[in-house]
Design a protein around this nucleic acid. Structure first.
Length: 550
RNA sequence: GGGCUGGUAGCUCAGUUAGGGAGAGCGUCUGGCUUUUAACCAGACGGUCGGGGGUUCAACUCCCUCCCAGCCCGCCA
């Protein structure tokens, strides 16, 4: 039985560990204190669901930072991720992601085929998209692709494979040989564990579903006898076929409470982060089982808080999900990694409508690393974590366009004009070389996608038709004068200056004239540097628009 | 009901590990730059550090209690 000192809240700072500026270093300290064998194994795991969402990525990234810190300290580290794909499909997912990471509804795939396979292991269910070997393989590929997009090398391990190739044999044999002890330990945590409980769920050879009723264990033959009974799943029941049969130790699986510690044993896991849902249930029983059934040392744990999306819990059924693919359309990978480098103890909200704020935070974090932020705590955190957040630390701080400014540039398609506007605003140095410019402009596409997806104040384009506008006489007169100036042939800079002069000449607020201009061309009240922009457009069009004629 | 983890400015968050000045960015407002247009500079406004109590010369920090949020305490994972 656990002695109650195994709190998984490793970062709770109630111990005597030395202070670290980056939480992953604190965890790395804990792991090193165990003097682990090399390579050090960092594990995560997930049950295949319909969509590889950011909750799964959370687990990948938390492990990644710890792995990277350990590698930096000279250790060899493997980051393993188990796909717990021998678990049964318990209910139909509402949403699925296709091989490219695009979310589709259940109606767009062969839902009937999925429904007929309720209760079977994910690896025994066909890929609804008809491409991969199984439902499980499809999902695992998605997750691996996401990790790859984020630059995180993970080793995906199929749980089904661990049974099939015999890796799990010693654990299953040991648990069943010590079934009585296993029952006693687990019964401390699960009230329904009675004397008939057997910690093994065979796959029915007749219908292919996982069953729970084992009637006999033959340790010598390494088989169990079973009856394929009904399985309760939430409010529903998955019917068993009633078949009575015999299964080998490889033709079934351990219940999760035993399987998790079993993975620690067979994979030699030294560290595993997990969501707070496991903190009070699976973890204490897992520690107990590891120590008193399997006789192994559990890994260093770390509980991370869940985060919310747009203020609401992540929910595929409610449609409140975002995939890595989608997120990387909106953000640079380093910004996504930064989000997960922040304190895991804090529940954070990823608010897509305010990604500009997240990116601003990232930019400040980056500046702090390069020593130009007068804030000790941010700087300490940046110095400790920034090298793990970016692909490679550049000698000089990368040029970063403010995200909202990048969104402004996104309405302009012409690359040269983007560069000109950015330079005019001082966001790109005049003498920047081509690769620097290219890198800085990469954010524009992300911000543009954001503006379109959010359909926010930055989502505007040049209005091809005259917007519905109304100006008072003095503004109309100023616009006419400006039109005449443009018609006479002047470049952008001159037009920009003329806007100021014209406003003064007509005794109107400069801001009012700018707003009138933005109204006419974008049907907005703000926009890019107007004169420079108008200078790039066709003169005839600009003149006509300024005169409210077209 | 019990347990765990959070609660700091309008927003996003540092700071709590060793008790001593409540902070940053963004936003807002004001002023400046004889070109303010998602730009820059300066300044201001803004918080009973979730509430209350206790310990202490001193509490965001330690203790107790209450409130709020999420999770766990059935099954499953």
């Amino acid at each position: 039985m656990s002695d109650g000192t195994d709190s998984p809240h490793t970062l709770a700072a109630d111990d005597e560990s030395t202070h670290r500026d980056f939480w992953a270093e604190t965890i790395a300290d804990e792991i090193e204190a165990r003097d682990p064998d090399e390579p050090i194994v960092v594990k995560g795991g997930v049950s295949p669901s319909g969509v590889a969402h950011l909750g799964n990525v959370n687990e990948i990234m938390r492990g990644y930072f710890v792995a990277e810190v350990l590698r930096d300290r000279g250790h060899e580290v493997r980051q393993v991720f188990t796909s717990d794909d021998k678990d049964p499909l318990r209910k139909l997912p509402r949403k699925l992601a296709d091989a490219d990471g695009n979310i589709v509804g259940l109606g767009e795939v062969d839902a009937g085929a999925l429904g007929r396979n309720l209760g079977k292991p994910y690896t025994d269910i066909p890929d609804p998209f008809g491409e991969a070997d199984s439902y499980a393989a499809h999902f695992a590929a998605l997750l691996e692709a996401d990790a790859d997009r984020l630059g995180v090398p993970i080793e995906m391990r199929s749980n089904t494979e661990l049974y099939a190739d015999g890796t799990f044999d010693p654990v299953v044999s040991h648990v069943l040989a010590n079934a009585e002890t296993a029952r006693e330990v687990l019964s401390e945590y699960q009230a329904k564990v009675d004397e008939d409980y057997v910690p093994f769920n065979p796959v029915c050879e007749e219908c292919g579903k996982l069953t729970e009723t084992v009637t006999n264990i033959d340790l010598d033959a390494e088989t169990v006898d079973y009856v394929c009974t009904d399985m309760e799943v939430g409010d529903n029941t998955i019917d068993g076929c009633g078949h009575e049969g015999t299964a080998s130790f490889r033709e079934g699986k351990l219940p999760w409470r035993f399987e998790w510690p079993g993975q620690w044993q067979v994979l030699g896991v030294d560290f595993e982060p997990f969501g707070k849902d496991h903190a009070e249930g699976s973890w204490p029983s897992g520690v107990d089982i590891a120590e008193n059934v399997l006789d192994i040392e559990p890994p260093v744990p770390m509980v991370y808080e869940w985060f919310t999306l747009n203020g609401e819990a992540l929910s595929s059924s409610a449609g409140n999900i975002v995939t890595v693919t989608e997120l990387l359309d909106l953000l640079e990978p380093e910004v996504v990694r930064y989000f997960f480098a922040l304190d895991p103890k804090k529940a954070r909200d990823l608010d897509l409508s305010r990604l500009d704020q997240l990116v601003d935070d990232y930019d400040r974090f980056e500046r702090a690393y390069y020593g130009t932020v007068d804030d000790e705590s941010v700087t300490e955190f940046a110095e400790a974590s920034y090298p793990y957040v970016v692909d490679a630390v550049a000698d000089d701080k990368p040029i970063r366009l403010p995200y909202t400014f990048a969104a402004v540039l996104g309405m302009v398609d012409d690359r040269d004009l983007r560069i000109k506007l950015a330079k005019d605003e001082g966001h790109i140095p005049d003498d920047a070389d081509e690769s620097t410019v290219e890198a800085a402009l990469a954010r524009v596409e992300k911000a543009r996608n954001w503006a379109e997806r959010m359909d926010n104040a930055y989502n505007y384009r040049l209005q091809t038709d005259l917007p519905d506008v109304e100006f008072d006489e003095s503004v109309q007169a100023a616009l006419d004068a400006l039109a005449a100036f443009v018609d006479a042939g002047h470049d952008g800079e001159e037009i920009q200056a003329a806007i100021y002069d014209t406003a003064r000449d007509h005794d109107i607020e400069i801001g009012d004239l700018f707003e009138a201009g933005y109204r006419l061309f974008f049907d907005e009240t703000q926009g890019p540097r107007l004169g420079e922009f108008l200078g790039e457009l066709e003169t005839e069009f600009v003149v006509g628009r300024l005169r409210r004629e077209r």
